[in-house]
Nucleic acid binder design. Structure first.
Lengths: 115, 115
DNA sequence: AAAAGCACTTTCCTTTTGGAAACTGCTATA
DNA sequence: TATAGCAGTTTCCAAAAGGAAAGTGCTTTT
């Protein structure tokens, strides 16, 4: 009889982690979420607050974040038309992730300079 | 006088978050870390425990995780030579991140099915 | 002797990501 | 009237990521 499946299953963790990564992956999604989170609402303000981002990346990522209901695009029909971006309530659920990533990044930088 | 810098700075958060993302980015790094974390030690065991991964991706990501001192590659000079992969102590510092991503993934899936 | 297991590597190819630069159409300000 | 600001779009291109499939060299099991 063939011996099989010597490995241990880790799908309980891997699957939900991958579901999350599918939403927040990429270089720019979390920086944009953070920038909007601190109060930047206008396209150019968000853009200028994130060093290195291009308007092309901005537009693409903002569209995806809108579809995922994490960022809301609001058009006010005053003169002139004003476009603002805001967190949806659902974006708040990401704060534990952002905090964990931020804390690790700070410690990691210390760790690197220590050596 | 020109009015400038209407945006709010978010570099305090964006920079460390990006430092972290530079380490754990990509589709496979966290799944591999999780798999090794639950006790898979052999190349093929890790590979089989992560649906969809190829040996090519495995080899590349394992090398990077080794360089980053998150996974240790251990060669035992018995007959036959045995190669095992293990968490370094530093990998333990990632658990808050993994937990946060896992929890969000579980809730997100519920959220999607609710609608 | 043949087949299977282990730990990978190699080749080929497609898709995705990323960046630079210029451009658009509208409005507001100097 | 010219310039600047806003919210993007478009083009071009290079680099990176991702996947399928086959191969390698060694060992162990049947």
């Amino acid at each position: 009889m063939a011996t099989k499946k010597t490995y241990l299953s880790c799908l309980d963790s891997v699957k939900p982690v991958r579901d999350t990564l599918d939403v927040i992956n990429g270089k720019w999604k979390l920086p944009i979420i953070i920038s909007v989170g601190v109060g930047n609402e206008r396209f150019t303000d968000i853009e200028e607050s994130i060093p290195g981002i291009t308007p092309k990346a901005m537009a693409k990522e903002l569209k995806e974040l809108e579809q995922q209901k994490l960022i809301e695009r609001i058009v006010t029909n005053d003169y002139p038309v004003k476009i603002t971006y805001k967190w949806t309530p659902y974006a708040n659920t990401l704060t534990p992730i952002i905090d964990a990533l931020k804390e690790w990044g700070i410690k990691h930088r210390e760790e690197i300079f220590k050596k």
